[in-house]
């Protein structure tokens, strides 16, 4: 079984490593491989250069925000089904609604609960 490819976009290297560490092994899901994007722009370039099964993205990032990244991904019909999870410190209701209305599948808040993140990813990839 081929690896599921996950794009992790966050301007914090620590956060990217935390996310990768948290979901590197998931029950019932095959092996995952990770590509990192250091901001929205870098994330979008990497997304376009390859096929991904899942995108994890922060919102507040330099060059291109996570919301812009999601909007650009969802503009292309071939990518409308790629699951996107937003992981952000912005927990206001309007932030959550903005992310979900652009096409994100889930909106999780930092500090992240690994158990919750695993549940969501397992559901989206099964």
């Amino acid at each position: 079984m081929a690896d599921r490819r996950v794009l992790v976009v966050d301007d914090s290297a620590t956060m990217r490593q935390l996310l990768i560490m948290a979901v590197r092994k998931l029950d019932g899901i095959g092996p995952l491989s990770f590509i990192e994007g250091v901001d929205g722009k870098d994330g979008y370039e990497k997304f376009c250069a390859s096929n991904f099964d899942l995108v994890l993205s922060d919102i507040k990032m330099p060059n291109m925000t996570g919301l812009d990244l999601i909007a650009k991904i969802r503009q292309e019909s071939e990518h409308k089904d790629v699951p996107i999870i937003i992981i952000s410190t912005k927990g206001e209701e309007h932030d959550i609604q903005a992310g979900l209305s652009l096409g994100a599948n889930e909106y999780l808040l930092k500090p992240i609960s690994t158990i919750r993140l695993k549940e969501v990813i397992t559901r989206l990839l099964t």
């Binding site: 914090s12 620590t14 956060m15 490593q17 935390l18 560490m21 930092k110 500090p111």
Partner: peptide, 27 residues
């Protein structure tokens, strides 16, 4: 483990401070 790895991965004071800040926000 990840946080300490990141903290010790640089010898630049400002980068260490940035990493501490990232940890405080994200963790």
């Amino acid at each position: 483990y990840v946080a300490s790895y990141q903290l010790h991965s640089t010898l630049e004071s400002q980068k260490v401070v940035n990493t501490i800040a990232e940890i405080i926000i994200n963790l």
